[in-house]
């Protein structure tokens, strides 16, 4: 805390150096996603003392422990609930939630949809590696079809969630998706999400090399990262030509954005009129 930050982005200014190196497996995309988040925070020139990073359980949940800011490592699936309380009590803080696909869509699925519905000024970074990595590689709600995991030894036959459509339908006012391979684009997307007043949901397509990639013969870490190039359909392709460059199944970029009433501001004005509530 309070360590000075150099003018050019140096990720070491934002890390708890005594905790490094981090516990993630070699080639885990979560590290790249964390870099994008910290870079976005650097570009927004946020004071580290005014930044709170909240995370749940799982590989993604451990990331908050490495950030040199106010961090909050909460229970499985509930980081959004904790963050909601934190943001309402301390509206001066910038609250970023780091969560995983299992954490936010399965165990904390209800918290996610209601956080989207409320539209409180939070930024939810969902790191999607299609598997429960930390607990041993069980299938998650975003596991792709026919993928082998420890709970789907014959291949996964459940359809997967489209988390961005879910968040958009539930009412998130900013929804975006990006892959870790496109780091500058991911950084820009997260920056837009943090700057957006309202609930921002950013899905980061990450990769799990050790537990998911190996079981499904998806190749080494560089091969898994490079494969993302074929999995995306950038927003800029639009609807011009049907499959112009063999676009993949994941549409990336800002997928939805509207300026709905932000819940925190509405709640505070309600308290000012009718009394009650907590003075920030």
């Amino acid at each position: 805390m309070n360590r000075p930050v150099s003018k050019d982005f140096d990720i070491r200014d934002y890390l708890r150096l005594d905790r490094m190196p981090h516990f993630l497996c070699p080639g885990c995309g979560h590290g790249i996603a964390l870099r994008a988040l910290l870079w976005a925070i650097h570009e927004l020139d946020l004071n580290k003392d005014k930044l709170a990073v909240v995370s749940g359980i799982g590989c993604s949940g451990r990331l908050s422990a490495y950030v040199d800011a106010n961090t909050y490592h909460t229970t499985h699936g509930r980081p959004l609930a904790f963050a909601t309380g934190l943001k309402l009590a301390r509206p001066d803080l910038t609250v970023v939630v780091i969560t995983g696909d299992g954490d936010s869509l399965a165990i904390g699925g209800n918290h996610l949809i209601h956080a989207c519905r409320r539209n409180l000024d939070l930024t939810c970074l969902m790191l999607n590696n299609e598997v429960y990595g930390m607990t041993g590689g069980q299938a998650s709600p975003t596991t792709s079809a026919d993928r082998y995991t420890t709970t789907t030894p014959l291949g996964n036959h459940e359809p997967r969630f489209d988390a961005c459509k879910l968040a958009q339908a539930a009412g998130a006012s900013f929804v975006g998706r990006e892959v870790t391979l496109q780091l500058p684009a991911l950084k820009n997307l997260i920056r837009e999400g943090i700057a957006h007043a309202g609930f921002s949901f950013v899905e980061v397509m990450s990769d799990c090399t050790e537990i998911y990639g190996r079981k499904n013969e998806l190749g080494s870490s560089p091969e898994m990262v490079l494969r993302q190039k074929h999995d995306v359909r950038p927003e800029s392709y639009g609807n011009q030509v049907e499959r112009p460059f063999r676009p993949g199944p994941w549409q990336t970029g800002i997928l939805a954005r509207d300026e709905r009433v932000e819940y925190g501001a509405a709640w505070r004005s309600h308290c000012a009129q009718h009394g009650g509530g907590v003075a920030p």
């Binding site: 140096d10 993630l24 080639g27 790249i32």
Partner: peptide
């Protein structure tokens, strides 16, 4: 530097 998940390169 950008794609190093371990922040080992500057």
């Amino acid at each position: 530097e950008w794609l190093c998940p371990d922040f080992a390169i500057k």
